[in-house]
Write a protein that binds this DNA or RNA. Structure first.
Length: 265
DNA sequence: AACGTGCCCAACCGCAGTTGG
DNA sequence: ACCAACTGCGGTTGGGCACGT
């Protein structure tokens, strides 16, 4: 039994949006706010699927969207964020005000990938293309009599551990990434000292529901759950500022970026 | 001018995660 | 605990456009 379709496809428009549809959607969201995407098309008098409305609003109609070309700074920020986050476009977009995940994804695939390749850097691993592949240790749970095991099932039972870098996507068990953890702010055993970035009680919105959270100040690396990475600029509260390393990671020290924007939309 | 090719990007699709009944 | 509904995400597609021949 499959999931029921999100909408009645026989009675919904597809393809490019018209000006009138845009106007209806904008007017409805201005009046009622975002959310309830499934019922929105009917309420707004649109012959569109709710997902389509949401996408149109988020990627194109939202008033806070930044239009125009990406700057060199944005390019470099995207590259750095991608090296940390991989293809987590929504997380990357959260660090680029006014940019959408779709926009960044497209930009990555059309511009930055090529740019990195021209630099001789593998856009997936962020390593030099001619550098030897990191050692891969494979732990197989396949039985000795694996000849009877379906190949696909066997592949599911393989854990790939890389010493560093991202999974290439072609590795076996690509959905298991032991290198990177995206986790809620972690601070109980780890003091964070960015006093110039006060962080307070926040409301997170997920799935249209509000969740109250209490958070504290932390650096970007730690916010990503990679406290022990070399990028962490707040370890033990004794580390000197990132400027001491000559590396203002992602502009945090300069206060250009605000951790708050990383919160879930 | 006509055609072919490649690029860009808006939109779609399918799946995963979350929530509430 | 289970399941359906809903939302959000990432990968992919395809129409339109620019450019070269």
């Amino acid at each position: 039994m499959g999931r029921s379709p999100c909408c009645d496809k026989a009675h919904t428009n597809k393809g490019a949006w018209t000006k009138e549809e845009d106007d209806r959607l904008i007017a409805y969201i201005r009046a009622h706010g975002e959310g309830c995407w499934r019922s929105l098309p009917k309420s707004a008098g649109l012959l569109r699927c709710g997902k389509s409305c949401r996408l149109r609003w988020i990627n194109y109609l939202r008033p806070d969207l930044k239009r125009g070309n990406f700057t060199e700074d944005e390019d470099e920020l995207i590259i750095k964020l991608h090296s940390l986050l991989g293809n987590k476009w929504s997380l990357i977009a959260a660090r680029l005000p006014g940019r959408t995940d779709n926009e960044i994804k497209n930009y990555w695939n059309t511009h930055i990938r090529r740019k990195l390749l021209n630099r001789g850097i593998d856009p997936m691993t962020h390593r030099p293309i001619n550098e030897p592949q990191p050692e891969v240790k494979t732990i197989s749970f396949a039985t000795a009599n694996s000849s009877v095991v379906d190949q696909k099932e066997e592949e599911k039972a393989v854990v790939v551990v890389t010493s560093s870098g991202f999974s290439s996507g072609k590795e076996r068990c690509p959905d298991l990434n032991l290198e990177l953890r995206i986790s809620p702010p972690y601070q109980t055993q780890h003091q964070h000292q960015h006093q110039n970035q006060p962080y307070d009680h926040q409301i997170l919105k997920t799935g249209g529901r509000n969740i109250a959270t209490t958070t504290t100040t932390l650096c970007f690396s730690c916010s990503l759950g990679i406290q022990n990475s070399g990028e962490c600029s707040c370890t033990n509260g004794t580390s000197s500022s990132s400027s001491s390393t000559g590396y203002d990671f992602l502009g945090l020290e300069s206060g250009v970026l605000d951790y708050r924007s990383l919160e879930m939309k």
